[in-house]
């Protein structure tokens, strides 16, 4: 059910600032790849361009051979790209189940009515929110809101999942739960692009990593090797440690 993602020479300026500069990479179906880099290096901007939230100033994005470069977010979603947000964004007027049903109704297929409700419960159970569908999202704890956001993303039946620091802000035991969840997805063959700062998570989940610094891709390869590269250490920790 997964499709490959191919990004070529992606470019984005904000006024005078070049936020993303000539970034290219590929994800094979079923791969979980980490997108790393210090704050402000352009990771979220890359995700925004893939998902259609921001128009690109140059370059192409292809998913499974389809060019989705200048598509609006709702079209991109229908082409099988789902995402979560760096700061969790629940829809407070909707119940937990309705948050998930939204993606079911407007994702790749149009699930509605009783069938959709059952599917929403299924997605909620998968992320560990079994039987919580009727609750207000405002009453959920932080990790439960993150879980709900994951369920909402999965409900559109994506081929590619973009996770923007989805594991950030969790305590150690919650982090374990979060990592297990992504591993379950991996087991199902989902392609995941994972923006992450937590090295424990990157080592556990990502076979490969891409590292950005100041808008440019500075390294790419198997996680264990990439994290040892001097340029990567320098980007993360400053010159003194290189």
């Amino acid at each position: 059910m997964s499709k490959p993602l191919e990004i070529m020479n992606l470019h984005k300026r904000f006024g005078g600032l070049v936020a993303v500069k000539d970034v290219s990479f590929k994800l094979q179906p079923g791969e979980v790849v980490g997108l790393l880099g210090p704050n402000g290096s352009g990771k979220t901007t890359v995700l925004n361009m893939i998902s259609g939230a921001l128009p690109c100033d140059g370059g192409t994005v292809r998913i499974g051979g389809t060019d989705i470069t200048m598509m609006k977010p709702h079209k991109v979603a229908k082409h099988g790209v789902a995402r979560t947000f760096q700061l969790v964004r629940p829809l407070p007027t909707l119940s937990v189940a309705e948050n998930v049903q939204l993606s079911l109704a407007f994702g790749k297929k149009r699930h509605w009515g009783r069938e959709a409700r059952a599917l929403a419960e299924e997605k909620l159970a998968f992320v560990g929110l079994e039987g919580r569908g009727d609750e207000r999202v405002g009453n959920l704890t932080y990790i439960d809101q993150k879980r709900m956001e994951m369920a909402r993303a999965l409900a559109s039946e994506p081929d590619l999942l973009l996770l923007d620091e989805w594991l950030a802000g969790l305590n150690p035991s919650e982090l374990r739960i979060g990592i297990d969840l992504v591993q379950n997805l991996q087991g199902q063959g989902m392609t995941v692009l994972l923006v992450e700062h937590i090295m424990e998570a990157v080592r556990a989940l990502c076979s490969r990593c891409i590292v950005m610094s100041a808008g440019e891709k500075i390294a790419e390869g198997p996680s264990a090797e990439v994290l040892q590269e001097p340029a990567v250490i320098k980007a993360y920790l400053g010159d003194d440690h290189a």
Partner: peptide
């Protein structure tokens, strides 16, 4: 009662989230 009703409520909360869920806002 329709899925458009749900979409309307969703975009009232957060248009960006609704759009990424597939709603043509």
């Amino acid at each position: 009662r329709s899925r458009f009703g749900l979409a309307l409520k969703a975009l009232g909360d957060d248009e960006t989230v609704a759009a990424h869920a597939g709603v043509d806002v």
